[in-house]
Design a protein around this nucleic acid. Sequence first.
RNA 1: GCGCCCAUAGCUCAGCUGGAUAGAGCAACGGUUUUCUAAACCGUCGGUCACAGGUUCGAAUCCUGUUGGGCGUACCA
Length: 594
Amino acid sequence: MSDNLQNNIIIQTLQAVNELYGAVLPESQVFLQETRKEFDGQITVVVFPFTRYSKKTPEQTGQEIGEYLQQRLPQISSFNTVKGFLNISLNDAYWANLLYTQIIHKAYGTFPTNSQTVMVEYSSPNTNKPLHLGHIRNNLLGYSVAEILKAAGYTVIKANLVNDRGIHICKSMLAWQKFGNGETPESTGLKGDHLVGNYYVIFDQVYKEEIKALVAAGQTEEEAKKNAPLIKEAQLMLQRWEAGDHAVISLWKTMNSWVYAGFAETYRNLGVDFDQYYYESDTYLLGKDIIEEGLAKGVFFRKPDGSVWIDLTADGLDEKLVLRGDGTSVYITQDLGTAQHKYDQYHMDQSIYVVGNEQDYHFKVLFLILEKLGKSWAKGLYHLSYGMVDLPSGKMKSREGTVVDADDLMAEMTETAKARTEELGKTADFPEEDKGRLYHMIGLGALKYFLLKVEPKKRLLFDPKESIDFQGHTGPFIQYTHARIQSVLTKASYKETSALKQPSSLGITEKDLLQALSNYPSIVKAAAQTYSPALIANYVFELAKLYNKFYHEESILKAEEEVTKQFRLTLSAATAAIIAKGMKLLGIEVPDRM
RNA sequence: GCGCCCAUAGCUCAGCUGGAUAGAGCAACGGUUUUCUAAACCGUCGGUCACAGGUUCGAAUCCUGUUGGGCGUACCA
């Protein structure tokens, strides 16, 4: 339903309550909802709140308000009252008109610019290992939220803060140096990020053996972890890196370049991109001036050993270290500095961090500190926290090799899509080059939809033994619906310029479909407000389901009348367009044939 | 210990600011194709919304407590 009519119903209902029962109520007292399927009508006014003023039964009250509304709103064709629910039916002309004047437009569901800028930081990988399923969830969420915000009228900057330095990076470097025998992506044929990741695993294996040996020699586990030669060597390498040692820097650059080439391929396959890269090797020293600022403002305090802290106990949190005793940064020091840096650069109204829920506490502290420092922009910061992706066996751990690799998974999904499609004989007449594209589209559609249909904050269970579905509540189901519509439109040689006339009557499913289409803009708005791709995902599924029902019930090409046929074609085209738009917000492409 | 998050059908999930008899998909069972793509459609089966109180005309939804699970609580990131 259009916002316009919705507002009218609310206003008229309030007037009715005023004129009939002498009560002046705020708009918040009028509750509109979609009429449930088992009753006649499309829109329902909940009349319970008015009965205390009407001093009549809910049925009588509904009846009186219904009559009042019908007299004043020509779009209302009829109404009925069940218990305290006033169910309103809107006439066919209203729905057809809505389709022709609004839904069909290209910009439908895309809001004009609100002149606000928002940064969405996502992905933020470590450069010591390849991406896994957890990262896929992060990337898809970030990309999708960015697209949704664009549709809602924001100017969006997609940012990627690459974690390219630190002890974990040195671990891969050291292991390669010691055990790599000069291996390169070229010499091994391995993707760069996988090659480097292998050495991260090797480091951990050797390190563990050393620990075991030291423990056998009488050291405690804790001592052994500190004293193992390999970890000491890695720490030394980090110091040399920080000192700008040529050999270390050169190795670091080489290995990182391998990883970046690998990531670029993964990102391309996944269909995500970025407007702004930040590298931790550039930003890790930021934040020290903020420490000074905080000390000067009395927000921070220094302990006798020189370390700097903030006391957040009054806010129900702890005392938090913000600078080490030796003057070096901790994680939050960098994040404070980077936040300021980003703001200085873009002056954005909002900044969203797509990061797993294991860091909930960190971001709570980070935002609170910036607020206490008096940063006006701190209120625009938001941690889009999402649940971990777990396997039936528990957490994924890179070092132990219990991860679902991103590249492998995408390849498997594409392969499954291919097998499934060929089994159904759908692509027998496809040109060879189109097949590959289609299989990739469907495979990734299944994967992306699977991950995005779940509310971000909920944790996700992925069972590699149970392959992701292609039927039912899935991406391919929605893609199929789109292809089906395109097929009909092609057969009818449908042109958008077809004369738009009022059909003699509309079926219930047609009206349901129109109502669903009419909800799209408010879904986009809600998804933007709550940063929830899941809202879009579930909406598009409902829409596709409704369309399939309609497709089954009514013949389009063989409609009784030409006007009806044109109307149904227009309705179909509009549905296809919304499906495509909605899926695009999820980063999922839809095919014209499948 | 303290803090945050989660709990809805056998499984995976929806359920908007409280509103009608809690909905989908999968799985199981049955039906639909000489007609626009059967990756579809229709039907059957399946729920004490973790538990106990409270607020309300009305609670899966809000509040409190309990239980179960996850995460965090580092001079790691």
